[in-house]
């Protein structure tokens, strides 16, 4: 039975939420707000659709968490000029590695969260007050997926270059814990890929594709998919497109997954005396599967939703 006071409370909450939405909409139009409102600058390479989606979804998440923020968006080339005029941002959200590198070269002294940044090749940032939400998945998550859908696998093959050496080391460590072997094939130039690939498919049970542009690019992707398929070695990918192209399964985080975690990071920042959490892999992710390829390789696949329950 609903009491009168509960009803009043619900109505009040609804009104507050409406006000917040209005405030958020106003924020977007650069209307000045109270001093204690958190001021965030979203800095991207350009004001792309992707960036707009991200900002919109982050704001929606923050609304849900009832946190009031003031957000401005900039393309990286105009950001530094704007910063001179208006230097009192509480937080910068750097979108992509290019912007992160720019900020590293021109330190602002403002706490920064880098997003859409790959842990592959990411060197620990010496700057204080800098954290990252990686776009790629932790090695252990890939291994858990492999163990689930390819239970007979013993050896995971990986093609890597100097750029992704860091990931190889991490994968190696994670694999040891999960009693798997890693067959790492290092590639030093593009012509090396094909013989490295032969070694990878001949001496592995599965090929883990990573976003290393030295290896996986438009020129090479076809050969990699065809070679591994010919030897009946399934590929685990890192995006929806990889699954469509022929990977048996992929793990990836969407813009809304990243937005959710970014909103949580911003909340943490406000609640913990403006300190940032440590850099981390995405907490939220999706699994995609290609049942046609799986079928052709005699792999039995569970539905992605079932897999999602098993893989953390």
């Amino acid at each position: 039975m609903t009491t009168f006071s509960q009803q009043t409370h619900t109505t009040m909450m609804r009104i507050i939420r409406h006000i917040l939405v209005v405030i958020c909409l106003l924020m977007h139009h650069h209307v000045s707000l109270a001093d204690d409102t958190l001021k965030i600058a979203f800095v991207g390479k350009s004001e792309s659709k992707k960036q707009q989606d991200l900002i919109k979804q982050t704001q929606q998440e923050l609304q849900r968490k009832q946190l009031l923020v003031h957000a401005d968006t900039y393309a990286s080339d105009v950001f530094f000029k704007a910063l001179k005029k208006d230097p009192d941002y509480d937080l910068i959200v750097a979108i992509g590695s290019k912007v992160t590198q720019q900020l590293r070269r021109q330190p602002t002294g403002i706490p920064t969260v880098s997003i859409f940044i790959s842990s592959i090749g990411y060197k620990n940032d010496p700057l204080p007050q800098h954290t990252a939400i990686f776009i790629d998945q932790p090695p252990s998550r890939y291994l858990a997926l492999i163990k689930e859908i390819l239970p007979h696998s013993h050896t995971v093959s990986l093609l890597y270059s100097d750029y992704s050496d860091n990931f190889y080391q991490q994968l190696h460590q994670a694999a040891t814990q999960q009693q798997l072997q890693v067959n790492g094939q290092k590639v030093s130039n593009e012509n090396d890929i094909y013989s490295a690939l032969d070694n990878a498919v001949q001496n592995g049970d599965v090929l883990l594709a990573i976003p290393d542009p030295n290896i996986y690019n438009r020129r090479t992707i076809k050969t990699i998919f065809l070679t591994s398929y010919q030897d009946e070695i399934p590929i685990i990918g890192f995006s929806d497109s990889y699954t469509t192209a022929g990977a048996v399964s992929s793990l990836h985080s969407t813009i809304s997954d990243i937005s959710k975690q970014l909103a949580e990071t911003i909340v943490y920042f406000t609640q913990n005396g403006k300190t940032l959490p440590a850099s981390s892999y995405p907490r939220y992710f999706h699994i995609s599967t290609n049942s046609k390829v799986a079928n052709s390789l005699s792999i039995t696949l569970d539905e992605p939703s079932t897999l999602k329950k098993i893989i953390k």
Binding site: K50, P211, S239
Partner: peptide, 12 residues
């Protein structure tokens, strides 16, 4: 990072 969202891959 575009690689993650890249839709420019043919179905192989």
């Amino acid at each position: 990072e575009e690689l993650y969202f890249d839709e420019e891959i043919p179905v192989v």
